[in-house]
Computed example of a mutant assay.
Amino acid sequence: MTLPAAHDVIAPDGSEVRILLSLTGGSMAHFRLRPGQVSAAVRHRTVEEIWYVLSGQGEMWRAAEGMETVTALAPGICLSIEPGTAFQFRAGETETLDAIAITMPPWPGEDEAEFVPGPWASPIDRNQS
């Protein structure tokens, strides 16, 4: 399979998703944020993910069990998101941020993502009043 030119869906967090392959144990997708875009902060109920940054710059915030981290995103960075971990990511101001993620088990549907408060304002943040 080759990477589709157009995205298949918009993820609950607002990122563009190009669906790649899926097996019984997991699925793979390409995620994209445009320059300056900020995702909504979410927490996955049951799936865990491994992310690998392909291009661009940005940051990923993760919070679980009272601990918070912000990881600089750049090509070659690989990180994990365990079930129940709140996370939010943003692209740098000048470059599109592209990443591949493996989801285990395969993505079950939109109800998997629960919106949570995050550190950065997002135009689609459902937790702001």
Results as ranks from 00 to 15, higher is better:
residue 44 H to E: 09
residue 70 V to K: 01
residue 32 R to H: 10
residue 31 F to H: 06
residue 60 M to L: 15
residue 33 L to T: 08
residue 54 L to S: 02
residue 33 L to A: 07
residue 70 V to W: 01
residue 26 G to I: 02
residue 58 G to H: 02
residue 32 R to A: 14
residue 31 F to L: 15
residue 58 G to M: 04
residue 46 T to P: 08
residue 67 M to G: 06
residue 64 A to M: 08
residue 38 V to E: 00
residue 61 W to D: 01
residue 24 T to K: 13
residue 45 R to P: 00
residue 52 Y to W: 14
residue 31 F to T: 10
residue 54 L to Y: 07
residue 74 A to T: 01
residue 52 Y to M: 13
residue 37 Q to S: 10
residue 57 Q to C: 05
residue 66 G to N: 03
residue 22 S to N: 01
residue 31 F to Y: 12
residue 44 H to Y: 15
residue 31 F to I: 10
residue 30 H to V: 04
residue 66 G to A: 03
residue 49 E to K: 11
residue 28 M to K: 02
residue 57 Q to N: 11
residue 21 L to A: 12
residue 41 A to I: 05
residue 29 A to K: 06
residue 36 G to N: 04
residue 46 T to H: 15
residue 24 T to L: 12
residue 28 M to G: 10
residue 48 E to Y: 11
residue 51 W to I: 07
residue 57 Q to R: 14
residue 55 S to I: 03
residue 22 S to D: 05
residue 75 P to T: 05
residue 22 S to F: 05
residue 57 Q to L: 09
residue 47 V to C: 11
residue 55 S to Q: 08
residue 53 V to G: 08
residue 74 A to D: 01
residue 61 W to M: 02
residue 50 I to R: 13
residue 52 Y to F: 15
residue 71 T to R: 07
residue 48 E to S: 15
residue 45 R to V: 12
residue 63 A to G: 02
residue 39 S to I: 00
residue 74 A to V: 02
residue 54 L to P: 06
residue 32 R to T: 15
residue 66 G to I: 06
residue 72 A to R: 14
residue 24 T to V: 14
residue 47 V to N: 09
residue 57 Q to K: 05
residue 22 S to R: 14
residue 49 E to G: 07
residue 39 S to C: 07
residue 36 G to C: 00
residue 49 E to W: 02
residue 23 L to C: 13
residue 75 P to N: 10
residue 61 W to R: 02
residue 34 R to V: 04
residue 74 A to W: 02
residue 72 A to Q: 10
residue 34 R to D: 11
residue 67 M to A: 13
residue 25 G to I: 03
residue 28 M to Y: 11
residue 61 W to C: 02
residue 23 L to Q: 14
residue 69 T to Q: 11
residue 73 L to A: 05
residue 40 A to C: 07
